[in-house]
Design a protein around this nucleic acid. Structure first.
Lengths: 198, 198
DNA sequence: GCGCTAAAAGCAAATAATTTGCGTTAATGG
DNA sequence: CCATTAACGCAAATTATTTGCTTTTAGCGC
């Protein structure tokens, strides 16, 4: 678990991290992921392999580390003028990104790592985006479901299907959005979940 | 993709496969998964490492192969006399198994492999179990939702939360079951999904 | 059953990845 | 500016993976 944060943020360390991340991204673009090795990354980044081994431990952790950065949302959800429109557009884009080859690879990298901190981060990113849409809806005076209801009703089914072999169709995605919005005003809020230890 | 099926099912090959699988299970019981290596497994199984390399390619594929066998349901869903009872009991047990340390490790192994055939198999196992419950409900003349609705409404949220860091509480699980059953008689069936290629 | 064919396994040498000890560089805190 | 020490680089030692070749044996036609 010797990853990322709470290491010396100063010049060299940060430079090495950036260089290694760039090397990974660059190599993943030009070759099959199965052929990417730590010595290769080290050469591309201009560092010695042992630096990578000591900092990330395994290739899997490094890949997860890079993937989670790429999964970080880089823009605000598009404002369409209505909660339904916002959620529909965001969901379709999310689904498309996640079900693309690149998206699925990144998700696999994040989930394959021992350390589940990266997976939690991805979940947090998604919740933040939905919270932004929810805030806008509230500002407009519109109903909007609980974040958890959207996670259960829209995000989870999409991710499950992508991970377990079926690509959700756009019709299904729209349907999920419709159902969660329809249920929003009729269902009571749900009980909270407990965080996982390991 | 030199895995599992359509290899010589006869004596030696099968014996080696069984021996290797047993070795993996045994080693995973007694030590940390991070310390399990192919040479170790080979020694435990009494085969040469190159046999494992040629047959499974990577440790990850072998682990996925073993995990999917352990995830295969070994019993029929308990018959409680009602659809709601059947689904509730099955779901609680499923959730408990999957969120245990062993369950999460197996799921990770299955999802981490390049080959997504194992993930598809897990999905199929789950659908079969739900189909059995649905058949029983139909025989009793009870309503029962579409398998896809149960996958979306119950299974996906549970798995998503386990994978992405939150353990679903038993209350939430019951709530998911309640909601999918409540929706069963009011919602139209959903459009189908397309299979994934890679 | 008997032998033929080829898939799968064993063996060992060659290659590649990972770990480790130790000296060096440079970020951080006083 | 100096002391401290985390992070890095280097190289040797260890361990894992690949590969060419040989041997075993399952599957199949006779």
């Amino acid at each position: 678990m010797p990853a990322k944060e709470n290491l010396r943020p100063g010049g060299r360390s940060a430079r090495v991290q950036a260089s290694v991340h760039n090397a990974v991204r660059s190599l993943l673009k030009s070759m099959d992921r199965a052929d990417v090795t730590i010595p290769l990354i080290a050469a591309e980044a201009g560092v010695t392999p042992s630096t990578i081994y000591r900092r990330w431990g395994e290739l899997q952790e490094l890949l997860a580390d890079v993937a989670v950065e790429r999964l970080r949302p880089d823009m605000l959800p598009i404002d369409t003028g209505s909660a339904r429109g916002d959620l529909e557009v965001w969901t379709e884009q999310y689904c498309e990104e996640m079900s693309s080859g690149v998206g699925r690879d990144m998700m696999r990298d994040v989930l394959a790592a021992q350390d589940n901190a990266n997976a939690c981060k991805c979940d947090a990113f998604t919740r933040e985006q939905i919270a932004l849409i929810a805030d806008r809806a509230r500002d407009r005076g519109e109903y909007f479901p609980d974040i958890d209801a959207v996670m259960d009703g829209v995000v989870a089914p999409i991710i499950y299907r992508i991970l377990f072999g079926e690509m959700p169709s756009i019709e299904r995605v729209r349907d999920l959005v419709t159902n969660v919005l329809a249920a929003a005003s009729t269902r009571p809020p749900r009980p909270a979940s407990a965080p996982i230890s390991g």
